[in-house]
Structures are given as structure tokens and as C-alpha cells.
């Protein structure tokens, strides 16, 4: 689905969401009478220092007046912008800042929902989609930590060998199914149905206060150990002091 189609299905009665140089921002009405703030990245735009700062600024603008307006993060991005200039300016701080703003919004009572409808990768993935309280996806979304050719270069294994290994585990290869299995993507939406209704239904469910992605990854056999290890360290630490 294109961004226009998604927005039309999310907001059949109109919206003021705009796209400027690959960045999405604005607001739309919800079926229950409320509104949702929308930010995001479209057209496989890389997320560099300017992009991260602009998106974070939008999030802060939603938080500042108070209230509990939800924030929808639409994502079809490249990875972080891989350039000398971005690193020179401290891209890690900018991406972390964006993630912090989204997580703070959640803690202050704004529901944060990521909607992955295209590509995303690496640092951009962490700072946007994975910093929301719940991540949903459209069929055909293509999340990747790293693409297979790059992975092949680093691991010195051929793409064929990597693809063969990927059949036995979702833990390393790109793709929506693999990331859903590891617990990153909670729900895959149905493009035949109204996205407005599906968004409303996500918002109507009580917000999970705990990060349950590791438990989800265990249930779905994508991450066999993470939840148990985190829990064991948690108990040991609580008992130690």
C-alpha cells in the first residue's frame, strides 16, 4: 500500500497529514471522535540528524500540551543515513533522542503505535518502529536489520548458504515473518479491512505497561532464551541488594 492509500484508509473523513522531504507529520481523526498525531518516514528515506531532530520535535510538540493523544509512527525508511557528516554531528545522539521522545510519550500516557508499511533497517528501525509501545505491520513490509548481501560480506557465507540457514531459524534473516516471530511485530494488519477500525481496535485494547516483546518472541519460537535470561538476571539483581 502507498502512503496515500494508507492515509485514506486510516482517515476516510480526511486528515491534515503532510509529506515533506520524506518525513510525515500531521493529525487525523479517530472513529471514536478523538484524534491521533501522525509522524513518520516515507519513500525509503534515510534517517539522518535532521530527520531525527524533526521527528523528535513533532513528538515533543504532542507531549508538551499534556493530554493523552496517541501517536502513530508510519514507517517506510532506509536505514540510518550512512555518511561522514551525520556521524561527525553525533547521529547516535539524534537517533537516541528520537527514541527517548517516543518512549517518554508512552510513559506520559500517549499511546505510541508503529505502523510498518515498507522498508526499515538498522538504526532507523530502532529509533522509530522499535521505540513505539506496539508495532504493527502491513503485509509486504520489509524490515531488516541488515540485508543479506551485506550480511554475506561480513559473515563470509554465501547468500545461498544464508538463505538455507534462514529456513531453520527466524533469528537473523530479514523479513516481516522473521521479525514477527522474534517478537518485534505484534500484529499484521489486514489490508482488505478498514485501517481506521484496526487502528481503533489496537487503541481500544489496554496498553501493556511492560515490554513483553521477549515473551512474545519466546511464544512464537523466534527467541528461545531472551525472556528467561532477562528474568533470571532480574531476580538475581533484585535479591542482591
Amino acid at each position: 500500500m502507498t502512503l496515500d492509500n494508507i492515509l485514506a484508509s486510516l482517515f476516510p473523513h480526511g486528515h491534515d497529514v503532510v509529506l515533506e522531504r520524506g518525513l510525515i507529520s500531521g493529525r487525523g481523526p479517530l472513529p471514536d471522535g478523538g484524534s491521533v498525531a501522525v509522524i513518520g518516514v516515507d519513500g525509503r528515506t534515510p534517517v539522518g540528524v535532521e530527520e531525527a531532530a524533526l521527528l523528535a520535535g513533532h513528538v515533543l510538540d504532542v507531549i508538551k500540551p499534556g493530554g493523552n493523544e496517541p501517536i502513530l509512527v508510519l514507517i517506510d525508511s532506509d536505514s540510518q543515513r550512512m555518511s561522514k557528516r551525520d556521524e561527525l554531528l553525533g547521529l547516535n545522539e539524534f537517533l537516541a533522542h528520537l527514541a527517548k521522545c517516543l518512549i517518554l510519550a508512552d510513559k506520559l500516557g500517549h499511546r505510541t503505535i508503529g505502523l510498518l508499511y515498507g522498508h526499515t533497517a538498522a538504526g532507523a528501525f530502532i529509533a522509530t518502529a522499535l521505540a513505539t509501545q506496539i508495532l504493527v505491520a502491513l503485509p509486504g513490509a520489509e524490515p531488516a536489520v541488515m540485508d543479506l548481501p551485506s550480511m554475506s560480506r561480513v559473515t563470509k557465507l554465501s547468500i545461498d548458504v544464508l538463505q538455507e540457514k534462514a529456513k531453520s531459524t527466524p533469528v537473523f534473516a530479514p523479513g516481516l515473518d522473521n521479525l514477527a516471530q522474534t517478537g518485534a511485530v505484534a500484529i499484521t494488519l489486514d489490508t482488505a479491512g478498514s485501517l481506521a477500525d484496526q487502528l481503533q481496535s489496537v487503541l481500544s485494547a489496554p496498553a501493556e505497561r511492560e515490554d513483553s516483546r521477549d515473551k512474545l518472541g519466546k511464544e512464537r519460537n523466534g527467541r528461545p532464551k531472551a525472556a528467561d535470561i532477562a528474568e533470571r538476571v532480574y531476580e538475581l539483581a533484585r535479591a542482591s541488594v
Partner: peptide, 15 residues
Amino acid sequence: LQEANAGELAIAEIM
């Protein structure tokens, strides 16, 4: 990279 999806998610959970 050999467990890229688990590592990426771990970073998100840590943050």
C-alpha cells in the same frame, strides 16, 4: 549479525 533480529530487538528492549 548471526543473530541480527534478536540483537536488534535486544537493543530496543535495553533502551
